[in-house]
Every structure is written in structure tokens, then in C-alpha cells.
Simulated assay, not measured.
Amino acid sequence: MKAFVKRSDAPDDIALQETEIPAISEDELLVRVKAVGVGIHDSYFLPQDIQYPYAIGIEAAGIVEKAGSAVTEYQPGDRIAFVSMMQPKGGTWAEYAAVRKDSLIIPIPGPMSFTEAAAIPVAGNTVLRALTALPLEAGDSVFIAGASGAIGTFAIQIAKARGWNVAGSASPKNHAYMKSLGADKTVDYRDPAWADQIRDWMPDGVDAAIAIQPGTGTDSMHIVKDGGTVITISGDRFKPERSIHVAFVPHKADVRSQLKNLFAFISVGKTQLVIEEVYPFDEGLKALRKTQTRHARGKLVLSLD
């Protein structure tokens, strides 16, 4: 099969080459990959006991080709989207992937394409887990730092669906886009006065902030009210002030049922899925470089069709 593999421990030593189709064990699925979601972590979410060459990538959508003897939930022909990471047999940037049955696997709704399905699992799962750490009610307010990417696109819409007032930061070219998703207030993160603009909007400060982009946690905390919450998706660590609670994404939170609902809502048009560009599989490195700029709008996807 063809796969984008990491050939050594050198940071950028990634290439498209022929490699063996992974053999599956009794508790795994062999999935024929049809589309791959591109993420900034794809080239470095790697197992400690990595053996080169190693196929990169953590999310995809495809068709079950074969099911191990201990797998009863899925069978050949099933269409699934999934997250598979840190697995010794390799990742998702390949024509075939071995997927453990206990991985995050979501059946693809009938009307949904593989391209659409591949764009949802990581961003959707991350947002839904993050929101479990925010004790907000209808009418409360939230600021989203870096709100025009794949995670922010879902965060704005889900927050609005819960009745929250939403502000988001991004470059000016993305302000109309964020408002189209439901954002009530948009600011330019490069404008020195952006925090004042948020305080003009919410004079007492917002109830919570979601710091998506690296380095945005501390600045986000400054516009949160006393005793509010900042959740950092990037993993930034900073010292809290004014009794503000600093939280990280609770990775053990089980939001699978909510994620299935998100797939269903997208499939019928109740939630908007934004894919900035679909690249042919052979252009995977170009897509990886684009997402590493952190300036993509919505999601980037590789198509193997």
C-alpha cells in the first residue's frame, strides 16, 4: 500500500512510499481508508516504541475490509470514521489502517461522504470534551481564542446551540466567517486593543474562555471574570489569578454519544462542517504544511478516492 511514513527520528523525514498492509489481530479492524483528516499533530503523535518506517496520522474515514475474530460490533462493508493514535502498526495516512476495536469509532450516517466524515472526529471530540469542563448555563458568555480553525468552528456552533454568548478571535478576514457560524462578537488577535473590546462587550468579563491556539491562555485569562474558567486546549500552562480556574481538556471524558449526535446533525445540515480544501492523497505534505501554519479555516482533508 501507499502511505506517508516517518522514515527516521529526524523531525521532517516524512515521505510517500510503498509499505506493507498491516496484519490485524483478533481485536482489530482492517480499514480501507477513503479520506484522512489533516491535523497539526499528525507528524508527531507517535508511539514511544516506534519502528520506522511508520505511517503518520490519527483520524480518517473508510470501509471495514476485515474484522478480527473478537470484533462483533463491526463487519466488512461498514462505513466508519475513527481516531487511531500511538498504535505500533501505524496511523491513518495510508491506504489501509489497523484500528483497535476500542478506538474512537463512529458509524458514518448514510448521507455523509467519507470526506466529510474524516473532518469531524478529532476536532469534534476535542471540543465536546473541553466543554464538559465549562460549568456554563444559557445566557453565560465564552471567549474562544483562535476560533476560525476546525476546533473553533465547532466550538462556536455548539456554544451557541447551548444558549451561550460567544466571542472569538481571529484575523479580520475570518470575522464574517465566525459571525456566520453564530459568533456575537469578533476581535482581531493582533489588535493591541482586542481585550478592551471584549470588556466593552462584557464589562464584568466573560464567564469562561477556551484557549485553542498556543500562547493564548494567559491573555484569555485577563478578560475572564473573577472565579471564571479558562480551558486550554493547546496544553499551555500558566499561573491562575483572581480565583480563576485553569482547566485542561479532560481526555477521559466519554462524549461518544454526543459525537454521534454531532455527526447526525452535520449529515442533515443542523450543524455546519467547514472544509477549507480537499487535497489528493499524493499532496499530503502540502496539506500538512498548510495546517502547520495554524491559519486554515475549518478543516483540511486528504482524499484517496
Rank of each mutant, 00 (worst) to 15 (best):
K2D: 05
K2M: 09
K6W: 02
A10K: 15
A10Q: 15
I14E: 05
L16W: 05
E18V: 12
E20I: 13
P22E: 07
E26V: 13
D27L: 11
E28K: 13
L29A: 10
V36A: 12
V36Y: 08
I40F: 14
Q48K: 15
D49S: 15
Y52Q: 06
A55K: 13
I56P: 05
G57C: 10
A60K: 03
A60S: 07
G62C: 00
V71H: 08
V71D: 04
T72K: 15
G77P: 01
I80M: 02
A81T: 05
A81Q: 01
S84W: 04
M86D: 08
P88W: 03
P88L: 02
K89S: 01
T92R: 00
W93I: 00
A94Q: 00
A94V: 03
E95M: 01
E95Q: 08
A97K: 04
I108P: 01
P111L: 03
E116Y: 00
A117E: 05
P121K: 01
P121N: 05
G124Q: 04
N125E: 14
T126I: 07
A130F: 04
T132A: 10
T132V: 09
P135I: 00
L136T: 12
L136E: 08
D140F: 07
S141E: 10
I144Y: 12
A147R: 07
A147M: 11
A147P: 08
G149D: 12
G152I: 09
T153C: 14
F154P: 08
F154E: 07
I156D: 09
R162I: 10
R162S: 13
W164E: 11
W164R: 11
G168I: 07
H175S: 01
A176Y: 03
Y177A: 00
K179F: 00
S180E: 14
S180H: 00
G182N: 04
A183T: 11
A183K: 00
K185P: 05
Y189P: 00
Y189N: 01
P192Y: 02
A195S: 14
D196R: 04
Q197M: 00
D207T: 07
A208E: 07
I210F: 13
A211F: 03
A211N: 06
A211I: 00
I212P: 10
I212L: 14
Q213D: 13
Q213I: 15
P214H: 11
P214R: 07
G215Y: 07
G217C: 09
S220Y: 06
I223R: 03
I223L: 13
G228S: 10
G228N: 00
T229K: 09
I231N: 03
S234D: 12
K239C: 02
K239Q: 14
V249Q: 02
P250M: 01
V255K: 08
S257G: 05
N261I: 13
F265N: 14
V268D: 12
V274I: 14
E276C: 08
V278K: 07
Y279M: 04
P280V: 03
P280W: 05
P280T: 00
G284R: 02
G284W: 04
R289W: 05
R289H: 01
R289A: 15
K290P: 03
T291G: 02
T291R: 10
T293M: 04
T293V: 06
H295I: 06
A296D: 06
A296R: 06
V301F: 10
V301A: 02
V301S: 04
